[in-house]
Computed example of a mutant assay.
Amino acid sequence: MSDISLSNGGGRGGSADWHAAGQSQGPSQGPSHSYPLLVRDHGLGTALKLLLETLPYALARWGVLLGFAAACVVWAIVAVGGAVWLGTHVASVFGYCWLLGILLLGGWIWGAILRYTLHMIACGHVAVLTELITHGRIGNGSEGQFAYGRRIVMDRFGEVAVLFGFNALIRAVLRAFHNALDTLGDWLPAPGMKAIVGLLNTILSAATRYLDKVVLSYDLTRGGDDPRRNIQDGLVYYCQNAKPILAKSVWMVIVERILSILLCLLLLVPAGVVTVWLPEAVREYGAMVTVFIAALLAVTVRAAFIQPLFLICMMIRFHALIENQPINSTWVGYLDGLTDKFRQIGR
């Protein structure tokens, strides 16, 4: 941590020095958490074992995604077919209006209903994973995974629902924090390498998309009735341990992209088989249809199995890093001055 500092002018707190904050560690509070931690290995092997142990949640997520993917295909056929028919038999402007309206409505359904459904499933999954990471068992050992996950989500429904709404605030805090870092300057000292800073910023943005679920895991382990404080503390802990977390998450994003490309290539074969079964009018566009089906299947498999795998890695890494670590109140003040989004979470 000591070799990363905040750049000048990085927000209202841009003049603060991360290097000094990391070195002084003060003023500090005592450890603001007290819970066991049985799993500390954040490698892919351990994550894969936990994913297989909680496979019902991955399969449930995949089932939902496949259902929505099938609906998406039907929706696209209705949109394009309706637009062609209206453009041919009525007027082209009606065809364009139909296509735009259907696609916008479909985008809203995809972005709202599907996102919230997956959020609820993911929260149940995180609850089960948190129990396995901290206690090695689910509840008292007599509950099934779905029963436990549903009970935790319903008992703390307010926190789960609030976290869904807090996603935008959490990402805004992270964006402000990342913009204030000299991380890329430290990692890329060669002048000619600065050209890829924009690409690496994109990677960093993607790498931290798991953090809202990691913060939920931290909130579940903390318990209590102040989830807003727990979310703030989770963000502070992330800032205190940003370098090892980002180093881990960047590699995760790279491996995830490689696996996603390989997955898409592998799925071209079953997608070709599906294309053969489709009506002759559709088979005329065989190559395009095959690639579309393969990409659609790859997206569902990636979201259901690959992304949860890296979420587990991030959860374990986070819990292991903050074990018995006091919160540095300097960071609380820094984030409070860096962006008003951090204060909004507290309110």
Rank of each mutant, 00 (worst) to 15 (best):
I258G: 03
N201M: 11
D340M: 00
R343N: 08
L118I: 15
V276D: 06
D340Q: 00
A295N: 07
G67R: 08
L44C: 04
V250G: 01
P279D: 14
D41V: 08
G124F: 10
P191I: 09
G10S: 13
D233R: 10
S7V: 13
R137Q: 13
A294L: 07
M120H: 05
T54N: 04
R115T: 12
Y148P: 01
I245R: 01
E284F: 03
A21Q: 05
V214C: 05
A127N: 09
S28T: 14
V74F: 14
S34N: 13
L6Q: 01
D3Q: 09
G107R: 08
N328P: 02
W85N: 04
D233E: 14
G45H: 10
V253N: 03
W331M: 06
M1R: 11
G30L: 09
A147Q: 14
Q325R: 11
L263M: 14
G67Y: 11
G107C: 12
V162A: 15
L163K: 07
E323F: 10
L181P: 01
W187D: 01
L6S: 04
L163V: 04
F177C: 00
L246S: 04
I196N: 03
F318E: 03
L204D: 13
I138E: 13
M193K: 08
M154W: 13
T46C: 06
L188H: 11
L169V: 12
G141W: 07
I261E: 01
G13Q: 00
W18V: 05
W108F: 12
S5R: 12
I203P: 01
A287V: 14
R40M: 05
D336P: 00
A161E: 13
I109Y: 02
N140V: 09
V84P: 02
R12A: 00
D340G: 00
P279E: 10
Y285G: 11
I113E: 01
Q240W: 02
M154H: 12
W98P: 00
L188R: 10
L37C: 05
A176E: 05
L48R: 07
M193C: 08
R156C: 08
G63K: 13
G22S: 14
A60E: 05
A172K: 04
T330Q: 07
L266P: 00
A271L: 11
D3M: 07
S260P: 00
F157V: 12
G192W: 15
G22R: 13
R171Y: 15
Y148R: 06
D3S: 11
Y237K: 02
D219W: 02
E284S: 05
A271C: 12
H125V: 09
Q25G: 14
I322C: 02
E280Q: 11
A195S: 12
Y96M: 11
A168W: 15
G234L: 05
V93H: 07
L262E: 05
L99F: 15
I102N: 01
L199Y: 15
P270M: 12
V215L: 15
S142W: 04
Y148A: 02
L199V: 15
L169I: 11
R222D: 06
Q232D: 02
V269A: 14
R228Y: 11
L132W: 09
F157R: 12
G149S: 12
V93S: 12
K194E: 08
A58N: 14
V128A: 09
T290G: 05
G101T: 15
T202S: 14
I102P: 00
